[in-house]
Amino acid sequence: MESIVVNGISKWYGKEKLVALKNVSFTVNHGEIFGIIGPDGAGKTSLFRILTTLLLADEGSATVEGKDVVKQYKQIRNEIGYMPGRFSLYQDLTVKENLTFFATIFNTTIKENYHLIKDIYVQLEPFNDRRAGKLSGGMKQKLALCCALIHKPTVLFLDEPTTGVDPVSRKEFWEMLGKLKEQGITILVSTPYMDEASKCDRIALIQNGSILATDTPNAIRQSFDLMLYKAKSHNTALLLKDIRHYSKNLYAYAFGEHVHITFKAGEIDIEELKMNLIERKHHDIILEPDDATIEDCFIQMLRA
């Protein structure tokens, strides 16, 4: 059964009708982690604000747990947890006070839903009397998650929860999401980091307000129908330039410490390319086939 249904949502801003979302549709099933993956400015936050009843869409409709985001916004607010991209708890209240405050306004107590936040809260408890504004970035993030969870929501909206968080905390954060999923909570999460896509059950790739693809991370990777090679030499920057120079039939881009080369099967002879690079005085050349990542898929979709 579906937890979130988005049906042809469009949103534009201002007199110039700057498009934030263009005919966006997707569904999120119960108890899955659904990732909205896209660069900054792709429209992720607008989408979240519409689904959390904070913003009205200009076109289209959406339901959360079967309730319309416009007509039944009051019921939705009781059932969802929302963690905005920007830290937005009371900085002048302590950790405990923030948590108690959000528990109370949902007519519950910390004790009642302690099991939900236990794993996260144990790390926060030593700082119970510290003001939220004085916490480190990772701790703030954990507190915000606790506050979004304290009323036992059925759907959790997390807008870029890992932006600006160190790699270790990011990993921990995703592990926590995995545990929450086991509790049967549907999680809609957005992120600009492509490497986090594989942690989701299903993902939607979004760019300029449009959804490029919606599927499981594996299916999206498998849909990649080009040849992909990774290359490296003593001078990778120059290598990228030389590869691009070699043929117009291939597309090369920097990918971490490697260069990724994509092309249609049969259009490029890899051995010939390697010879060409040696002629151009590259040494320590590595040139081998590689599996496509979500980022490769995203880049390909943007070119198409």
């Binding site: 009051k74 929302y82 905005p84 920007r86 937005s88 009371y90 959000f102 949902f106």
Partner: peptide, 13 residues
């Protein structure tokens, strides 16, 4: 300005 109103608005307050 701080954004706390956003968090308040998604609650049933």
């Amino acid at each position: 300005e701080v954004g706390t109103i956003e968090q308040i608005n998604v609650t049933p307050i």
